[in-house]
Design a protein around this nucleic acid. Structure first.
Length: 495
RNA sequence: GUCUCCUUCGUCUAGGGGUUAGGACAACGGGUUUUCAUCCCGUCAACACAGGUUCGAUUCCUGUAGGAGAUGCCA
């Protein structure tokens, strides 16, 4: 018999922004499908009408697009087993929930949320096992009629066997066995608003969409037996389960906002490259061998495999992500980087939209200087902003080297001003001996000499190489900036 | 409380009955350099614990501890 085509899905619920955990699951499913010549399906699980938002849905689409992940079947692109949005499939769920009632695998429950709330409180107080007390499991026809007459809208609950075990297997975790009495007692399948719960919709859709493997986070492990019971009740064969290790924060708890940014939108805004995120995220819970850690999306689409998955949860390391980001920024060509940087420069008001020819010229030459100084794309304004705008103020503390005073600094500044033509005309290699000679003559350290110049021209002690920067700035602008500082110092000296 | 899963440097991991337990990030130190950054070199640093099995356990088994997850008309 031929092996059936691999079909996997990412099934997020649009109730919030896409975050690291979700994206990791999406990526692994996508890579697994590609590596096995299978199909990657996107399904929208929008059965929670309270928390649903259009914004979340937009965010989902734009995030996947940004990462370069394309789905073979799903919303927008369609497919043979649609619709791929659960809110458009409610009839199906109702029909199958009813079938379960008819076959004796499920029952109507008329318990109100209030009663359940009370029950939970009581259980907490008495430290008893939590869970539904199966109050409606064996209602007499008269009792049931009474509830109906009272106009209570029922939910449908699954009858979990009272005795015995449910056995199942997870690709990663191996064979497992659970006492039926330990499974959440009679979970709700169909809510009173007529929408299915996750469990029902998920199982039905996976079945009809012919999903072969379920790759999802380990937080779902406890619901495997419940799903297996559902498959049994329907008389269907469950797919292969493979539960991915969870992504944790630095404190070992499930990764969340309090650990820092987790939404892809935030990472994107800060100036992370999709290549870096994709590469790093793929290495949480998965590895290729003992040393390789750079992977493109295309490579992962070939190399990914379940066998190399790790069981233990992994802590999300922002520092390592930053390192990857820097690496990928440096791999960009100057032209690519310029393109990526434009939005940040425009937003900071560093350049006009569109750029003037002068700005474009400066920018072209400035990018190579900036490239190895960027951790995030958003760093760009502070790295090269001085090339476009003169510093607004100076910190005299920074301007005057530790061992020198105002008078001496002023003197040196005048030397700088006199050397401007040489800064512009001589190549960087040619000017260096000239500068050294000058410093010897003046009895000042080259570092100090140039630091004064640096602060005067850029407004800060940290900048790209100062000689190159002056060349970009031009004689006139450099002269202006140095003169301004000279005047400031003069004022202070005469005071 | 109950159930379930997990456990190699601070972090991500490789490995696997006999290894100097390997790599990367971070940290620290050094070098290159006009600052910063980049780059290069180096240092620190781990098999949770206890029993077993074995000639030999970090590796296999059992237990303990610790951590995490689940216990919703959320997914």
């Amino acid at each position: 018999m031929e092996k059936p085509e691999v079909r996997v899905r990412y099934a997020p619920s649009p109730t919030g922004l896409q975050h690291i955990g979700g994206v990791r699951t999406a990526l692994f499913n996508y890579f697994f499908a590609r590596a096995n010549g299978g199909k990657f399906i996107l399904r929208i699980e929008d059965t929670d009408r309270e928390r649903y938002s259009d914004e979340s849905l937009d965010d989902l689409y734009s995030t996947l697009e940004w990462l370069g992940v394309k789905w073979d079947e799903g919303p927008v692109v369609g497919g043979p087993y649609g619709p791929y949005v659960q809110s458009e499939r409610t009839e199906l769920y109702r029909e199958y929930a009813k079938k379960l009632v008819e076959s004796g695998h499920a029952y109507y429950c008329y318990c109100t949320p209030e009663r359940l709330e009370e029950l939970r409180e009581k259980q907490t107080k008495e430290k008893k096992d939590f869970g539904y007390d199966r109050h409606c499991r064996n209602l007499t026809p008269e009792q049931e009629q009474a509830y109906k007459d009272a106009g209570i809208k029922p939910v449908i609950r699954l009858k979990i066997p009272l005795e015995g075990y449910t056995e199942f297997e997870d690709f990663l975790l191996g064979p497992m066995k659970k006492r039926n009495s330990d499974i959440s007692p009679d979970p709700i399948l169909l809510k009173s608003d007529g929408f299915p719960t996750y469990h029902l919709a998920n199982v039905i859709d996976d079945h009809f969409m012919k999903i072969t493997h379920i790759l999802r986070a380990q937080e779902w492990v406890p619901s495997i037996p419940l799903h297996v019971q559902l498959y049994k009740a329907f008389g269907w064969e469950p797919p292969v389960y493979c539960h991915l290790p969870m992504v944790m924060g630095s404190d070992g708890q499930k990764l969340s906002k309090r650990h820092g940014s987790t939404s892809l939108r935030d990472f994107r805004a800060k100036g992370y490259l999709p290549e870096a995120i994709l590469n790093y995220v793929s290495l949480i819970g998965w590895s290729y061998d003992d040393s390789r850690e750079f992977f493109t999306r295309q490579e992962l689409e070939e190399l990914f495999c379940l066998e190399k998955l790790n069981k233990a949860p992994g802590v999300f390391d922002y520092k390592k992500l930053d390192w990857f980001n820097g690496q990928y920024i440096r791999k960009k060509t100057d032209a690519e980087l310029t393109e990526l940087l434009m939005p940040y420069l425009e937003k900071a008001g560093i350049v006009h939209t569109p750029m003037t020819p002068e700005e474009e010229e400066i920018l072209t030459k400035a990018i190579p200087l900036a490239k190895e100084r960027l951790k995030y794309l958003s760093d760009i304004p502070e790295v090269i902003g001085f090339l476009f705008k003169a510093p607004e103020s100076y910190n005299t503390e920074e301007l005057i080297p530790k061992k020198l005073d105002k008078e001496r600094t002023l003197e040196l500044l005048n030397v700088h001003a006199g050397m401007i033509p040489q800064f512009i005309e001589l190549s960087e290699e040619a000017i260096e001996p000239v500068l050294r000679a000058k410093c010897d003559e003046l009895g000042v350290k080259l570092g100090d000499f140039l630091m004064i110049l640096r602060v005067a021209v850029t407004g800060t002690k940290i900048s790209p190489p100062i000689v190159g920067s002056i060349k970009l700035l031009g004689a006139e602008e450099t002269e202006k900036r140095i003169q301004k500082v000279i005047n400031i110092l003069k004022d202070e000296v005469t005071k």
